[in-house]
Design a protein around this nucleic acid. Structure first.
Lengths: 198, 198
DNA sequence: CAGGAGCTAGGACGATTGTCCTAGCGAGGG
DNA sequence: CCCTCGCTAGGACAATCGTCCTAGCTCCTG
């Protein structure tokens, strides 16, 4: 039972990476088995189907994303710094993003094209970031615009990821990060939009 | 020979659409054959391999993109209007983008994950837009920044496409388009960055 | 020590993949 | 008329896919 959880976790970790690097459909059971170092037939003792592995991978991503956001909540002094921390992901994970794009965006799109039922589950990772970003902007006083701003930051990261993946241009990423930081500065300087009169 | 070109064009058109809707790897010969209405074995009289079809599809996209940009050059009175026309693509093709994302960005990323040699060829479609946008900004007087601005507009479209595909939110797309139009207005009002002293 | 449950290895399965081969169709030129 | 050549249909092919079955191993429990 102890080894069970270990093998299961190893499968999820290997599948998580492979789904990102090679795509979900292009990742075969044989590739995951080879990575983990177990036999192909052994999978079905841990997962009933490939879709079930996908579900476990997405849940794993949800957990690690939640943990990362909670860590940022603790480490960063305020909401503005937290948003900046998010923006900097495209630099922190620069190499992976250049090679494979954004893990969330690319998986969501692949599942959309496959018509896969787990698409909605994959989008929920996006929702995690969206809600978290919205909370930061709300704490900054943007009660009405918070979600709009959150979506804008999300779109920024996806745009940078896709173009970075296409052109392999690190300077472009840095420029766009600087640009968004400047945009955020300006937004914070002008303050939130006035509430509608009661 | 007349029918040859017709069948070949039909195969390319069907593959072009299917590669976009279902992805390159998930699109089988059987699916293309069924769409066109020919037998599976007949493919190899027109194309030696699936990769050759992919090459023909990308070349077809290059041609149609070039034609579209040339049309915009004629129809729009000035470079500013042309950039706006590009920005509006995410609305014009809104439905397809919500369902399948951007054809260029998603194919490029898929080929990157597959390690496919045609990746560079797919990126050249991006290059077409990049160069064209750069030309527009140069005509607007942004000699130094032209390419930076072009890349920013490119990243905008990719970000909007990916987030639109994830959340199926048409209002978000419209808001971001308005935002970029406002950004462009401001850029044009302030004028280009001063040249360095000779 | 005996027994059972958890876990693993290895292979069989039907389906589907991209690729290739061959026989036959139909029109155009000698 | 006949023969050639572009084009097509249909199936064979080896490989790989996800799935499933079964026998054997290990280790904890009684």
């Amino acid at each position: 039972m102890a080894e069970n959880a270990g093998t299961r976790a190893q499968i999820i970790d290997a599948a998580n990476r492979l789904f990102y690097v090679k795509g979900f459909e292009h990742t075969s059971f044989a590739a995951i088995a080879e990575t983990v170092g177990i036999s192909r037939g052994n999978f079905y003792h841990h997962f009933k189907s490939k879709d079930e592995i996908l579900g476990a991978v997405i849940e794993s991503r949800l957990r690690s994303t939640r943990a990362m956001l909670a860590e940022w909540d603790q480490e960063e002094p305020g909401p503005a710094e937290r948003v900046r921390r998010f923006v900097e992901i495209v630099i922190t994970n620069g190499t992976d993003i250049q090679n494979f794009g954004c893990p969330v965006g690319t998986l969501t799109n692949e599942l959309a094209k496959l018509g896969h039922p787990a698409r909605a589950q994959a989008v929920s990772v996006f929702d995690l970031f969206r809600t978290w970003l919205r909370t930061q902007f709300e704490e900054l006083g943007f009660a009405v615009e918070a979600d709009v701003l959150a979506m804008h930051v999300l779109a920024f990261s996806q745009g940078v990821a896709t173009v970075s993946n296409a052109f392999h241009d690190g300077e472009f990423v840095q420029r766009e990060v600087d640009r968004l930081h400047a945009w955020l500065d300006e937004r914070l300087a002008h303050g939130p939009a006035p509430r509608s009169a009661h």
